[in-house]
């Protein structure tokens, strides 16, 4: 067996080995911190999702309470979109400010960032009875956004699709 005859080689090997070990440790610690960050993201997304789902409920309620006003605004959209927008996305109840109060904002000790900005994105009829589908389908899309303390913007959407029936009283 050939002996190691170079002076100081054990020390050199130990240093190299230590550096490798430390690098492994650094990679491991980075992985652990990434896991924590992804847990925070899950937490944030879940909170956004529930808020977006809730807003979709309110939007559907408005449609159910004022169906004729919605349909008139929808039909008039081909001429001018102002009426339709004031019923949907531009309505005060669906703007970000409407959900900016403390009661509507969920909280978490796990991740603290800015306030959640939630709003209605659209509330459209996907098909109309005049088309070959003979069914009307209303799609409501809401969105909740949030800037977390790591400077990342997270978004969650909620899409609610319902079959509707337009009755005309003559």
């Amino acid at each position: 067996m050939k002996r190691n005859t170079k002076n100081g080689s054990a020390l050199a090997i130990a240093i190299v080995f230590s550096v490798v070990l430390l690098q492994l440790a650094l990679v491991y610690s980075k992985q652990v911190s990434n896991t924590t960050a992804s847990t925070q993201q899950i937490d944030e997304r879940v909170r956004l999702q529930y808020l977006a789902d809730g807003i979709a409920q309110i939007a559907l309620l408005k449609f159910q309470k004022f169906p004729s006003d919605y349909y008139y605004a929808w039909d008039y959209k081909t001429v001018e979109a102002t009426q339709f927008n004031s019923f949907t996305t531009n309505a005060d109840e669906f703007k970000e400010e409407a959900f900016n109060n403390d009661q509507d904002q969920p909280s978490s000790i796990l991740s603290k960032g800015g306030k959640i900005k939630a709003k209605l994105i659209f509330m459209n009829l996907e098909t109309t009875s005049a088309q070959k589908w003979e069914q009307e389908v209303l799609t409501i899309k809401t969105e909740a956004k949030y800037n977390n303390n790591r400077g990342k913007e997270l978004t969650a959407d909620s899409v609610l699709t319902v079959k509707t029936e337009r009755s005309v009283i003559k």
């Binding site: 409920q57 559907l60 309620l61 159910q64 909280s107």
Partner: peptide, 16 residues
């Protein structure tokens, strides 16, 4: 010890 908390908020409407 710190009491950790987590809150979810949503709305439910009186739909038909």
């Amino acid at each position: 010890a710190i009491v950790k908390n987590y809150t979810l908020v949503t709305f439910k409407a009186k739909l038909k």
